[in-house]
Design a protein around this nucleic acid. Sequence first.
RNA 1: GACCCCGUAGCUCAGUGGAUAGAGCACUUGACUUCGAAUCAAGUUGUCGCGCGUUCGAGUCGCGCCGGGGUCGCCA
Length: 561
Amino acid sequence: MIPSGRDLVDAALRAALQRAVAELGWPAEAGAMPLAVERPGDPAHGDHATSIAMRLAKPLRRPPLEIAEAIRQRMPPSEPIASVEVAKPGFVNVRLADEWVAKQADAIAAAGADYGRSTHLAGRRIQVEFISANPTGPMTVANARGGPIGDALANVFAFAGAAVHREYYVEDGGTQMKRFGVSVAVRYRQLLGEEAELPADAYQGEYVKDIAAQIRDRHGDRYRDLSIDEQAKVFAPMAIDWVVADAQRVTAKLGIRFDTWFKQSSFIESGYLEDTIRELRKRGVIVDREGVVFFETPEAVALTREGEEGWVLVDAQGDPKYLGTDIAYHRLCLEERGFDLKLNVWGANTQYHLQQMKIALPVLGIDPARFEVVLYQYVRFVHEGVLTRMGRRTGRFLLLEDVVEAVGADVARWFFLQAGADRTLDFDFELAVQQSNENPAYYVQYAHARIVSIFRTAAERGLSADGADVSLLVAPAEVALVKALLRFPELLDDIRDRRAVHLLTVYALELAGTFHAYYRDHRVVGDDEALSRARLRLVQAVQVTLRQVLGLLGISAPEHM
RNA sequence: GACCCCGUAGCUCAGUGGAUAGAGCACUUGACUUCGAAUCAAGUUGUCGCGCGUUCGAGUCGCGCCGGGGUCGCCA
């Protein structure tokens, strides 16, 4: 594990601050204050800086410049740090030593696939649940947004040593299932030549016919004499199998592999849901009214919306509702299945549900910090010239599979990961296909392919990075390039802290750009053999880092394009 | 009406309390007999929606407006 520049600077500043606290008799709390080491925008201000002196000025009742100076004087000389300066309002600016930076190219290249790997989350068992669309139809672009987000987040957690579990929650227990089953039954009857009409609240999509046809092909008219409700009951699980198979095929095309496809019906049938409601009852938060089971606490009442009767867990027919099953499901994951943290990637429509869950889980003694949600905003698409919200029941949607077929998995993943989760995404299919050749994903992949090509050229001339002397990397652009690489582990810290995977794409673009510029001005394979070897080592370190970033994004790092 | 998200360059978006607010696309002009031109270089682009507040310091935090998107089911 290579400590990042920020970690080194942070540790040195921390030590200096604590020394100052001890020697100058400052209050002990001052030594524990977060340093918040940052990167100055202006290179003239060094590589890392802290504003701690300004923030300590008031509690210590001393001018910031004096505090900054006290810290600066107590920074011991060290190999990575070239200089420490105090600047105007009270910044402490730290500059890394070029020689040390250059050396890191060696370390990064040697680390290879382990570059950036850490133990920050070692021992943590994290379930990342994502996509989990209502299993009543094929996967659309709207459902799919959680896919790359959840998958990349899981990658980042695993890379930090967590035991990560990717879960697709198959919600096959609710009322939508009955509706779905009836829809299939109607189509089945129609295929057998009977008169049957789709109810208004049924699923209208063409795929329902496909499912019915599949049942007819496999079972013929075996179910002809059943009532429509009986047919619905028999067909619903078959229809779910069809939908899950579709989701498995399409997510696989996007490069996503789940550890479990966990069925909601499993814990309803096992009695765990009932047990959970008994438990809630024991805690005195259940109220029964006219056969309906409500969750009721003062907090819940305060949040309850106008016109809403209450928070229904089970309806008068005995059918469990979303909140009821979800409380049981989360209890199952966090109390029985052994996850320390359950992180869900959910669509924006669950915003109210999320607030309900935050109130309900602590009632069962579950620490709400163990339940987290990355809420992403909608994906809209251009439908007949207008931006439209996708909906399966309305039949207005864009299939993920069609998009992946048209632009490829790499470009599709990039699209979903390029912006923060809380920004609405608009997708124009025609435009996406048309512009896929100038996609930013290719800009990054091209940098990688270019590096592979450099090594091909080097090999033809019998050159490699073996025995490179990286102290020859003294050009400013070379030092800058290594510094860009050194940001990678810091970036991973930020992504974990903020659950913000889109930062990977931002960084990938910057790194590729820095490399492309370097490539133009500096010949890697040249006449000077020693310098060529050193530069090959540098380029190798860039390749290693690009691979890591692309790998975490789930985007391929091609040798040719 | 309540609640959630967004408002930053012509467009798509970074920037999550620091110093002179950035990148890609688009536009203009240059650069391939030399490691891949899916690239690079140079040029142009801003009332950070508006107002008030907190702070040594606000695009960033709080409050209030304005504009856009979303949710408000015994659906999930």
